[in-house]
Design a protein around this nucleic acid. Structure first.
Lengths: 275, 275
DNA sequence: CAAATAGTGTCTCTAAGACAATATCAC
DNA sequence: GTGATATTGTCTTAGAGACACTATTTG
């Protein structure tokens, strides 16, 4: 009869083959563009952080930030650590997207990826120096269904344009997964991870859970609406949007002025949605 | 200058420490109980498959079915394989619950778990011999919020009752996670996995995506309603339930008779929700 | 004043909840 | 007939979409 302690003393995990595990993060930010007129609000664009790979494999190609998990942390902590290393910003929240474990997805060997979406506010990123020659850059994102079940993902940064094509694989339980038709020069299976991350983001944004993380503590309702519209790729009537979010926000009494039109009240997120 | 092929030929994954990865599955079934009257519909109970551990660690305690992932499969395939080994049933669907990777969660060493919910129809399980002396048994499930943020999970099979207590950790993005207050004699952190799986199941059932997988191809609307009510732990008026699911089902024209009351039409799932 | 956004009110339509009423069977 | 479920219809209410209208600012 072997006791549990005796068993554990003898136990060798090395008897079994093990995968390496990475946490890869699709970090999104919503950027406001150039002011085209002194009083017109600028365009807002969804952008995604990509890293140019400095070493093999996929050397010189763009990939999601990520890294190998260590034994003294959870996968979520690893994901947060990777984002902070690249942006110096601690994301307000991260959300799991799924595990990517297709055999052969990494030419280095058996490496599976646990993917996350994170959301970073433009305010916090602005404080970090943005080096144009850096290997980390924010790409503008466009993601649309071209025909039934076929999606085009376009990522652009200055004159670099990455065009990936994806086929919807399964839509079970609100988490859509994709097969890569054309990787668009993105490293590994990262095109599929990005597409799944975008779908997860949109799905979460349906219930106003996600949106606030893109904004500072105090915000105007039209800023909030812009964020929501940018994520969901839709447009809404301001009057209706106000009604819908009214449960989740509260007035601060402060106003934002100086924009060539009526000042807007600043709101903050309400901890407990009421009414 | 090293080419990618030269790099890969030299590359050794073994330089890095790696975790073992298991896929653990919370497989749910909805069981109908004893007929208390010749015409009254029996009670329906949500049940969960647990395995009595035959070896260390946690020898003799109950745990979720699961096993180590292999390099020639995805984690999802591993999860499906484990369920089929235990039940001889191929689940209609599996849904990811999350990754459980807290350091120290497994006394054998660095082992992380990718958890899934699966749903099995009572019909398919009935065809498999159920051995009372077996190490695999279906436990009745009850899961309720006792006070704010504190949940009690009760699992019972004959005279065995496992009572776990869990504290809500984070509810971000509709995926609730739990800390274990009392494991209720469940192995590893499986009490937390089961709780998270139940929340994922309820959340998915909100949109009528999940429910059909508990039933055979043809079913009556009240059977469907019973399933929905059992998962969500609520009760609904039959008239309203019919209206709500009407988009997702279609008539077969066949009737189920012989139950001491008006025969019910059998419906099937509609591939494309219309109307 | 013109152009732009901020904010309010109201109409309609749809979907969900409550409930009343009828239908059909096995015993 | 009795007791059970099956099925249909209707009333009410809550919320989303559309839209008209007013308010306030800066060049």
């Amino acid at each position: 009869m072997v006791t549990e302690n005796e068993f554990l003393a003898e136990y060798k995990l090395s008897d079994y083959e093990r995968p390496s595990v990475t946490a890869d993060v699709a970090a999104f930010m919503i950027r406001s563009g150039e002011k085209t007129s002194y009083r017109k609000d600028p365009e807002h664009k969804l952008s995604l952080l990509l890293i140019r790979r400095g070493g093999h494999p996929y050397k010189g190609m763009w990939a999601l930030p990520g890294g190998f998990m260590q034994s003294d942390e959870t996968v979520e902590e690893c994901a947060l650590r990777e984002i902070m290393e690249e942006t110096s910003v601690r994301p307000v929240s991260i959300m799991p997207v799924g595990i990517f474990s297709q055999p052969g997805r990494d030419p280095r060997g058996w490496i599976i990826s646990s993917a996350y979406v994170s959301i970073i506010s433009e305010e916090s990123v602005k404080q970090v120096a943005c080096d144009d020659a850096s290997d980390a850059q924010w790409f503008n994102v466009s993601f649309e269904e071209e025909e039934d079940g076929i999606f085009r993902l376009s990522l652009s940064y200055e004159d670099i344009v990455l065009n990936a094509v994806l086929a919807e694989k399964s839509a079970s339980f609100g988490r859509t997964m994709f097969d890569i038709v054309d990787s668009g020069s993105l490293a590994f299976d990262h095109a599929a991870i990005i597409a799944a991350a975008l779908m997860a983001l949109r799905s979460a944004a349906k219930s106003f859970e996600t949106v606030f993380d893109f904004l500072p503590d105090k915000f105007t309702l039209s800023a909030l609406q812009k964020v929501q519209e940018t994520i969901m790729n839709v447009s809404m009537l301001p009057a209706n949007f106000r009604r819908m979010v009214s449960k989740y926000v509260e007035e601060t009494g402060e106003y934002l002025r100086g924009d060539g039109h009526r000042p807007a009240m600043l709101f903050r997120r309400r901890k407990t949605p009421v009414k």
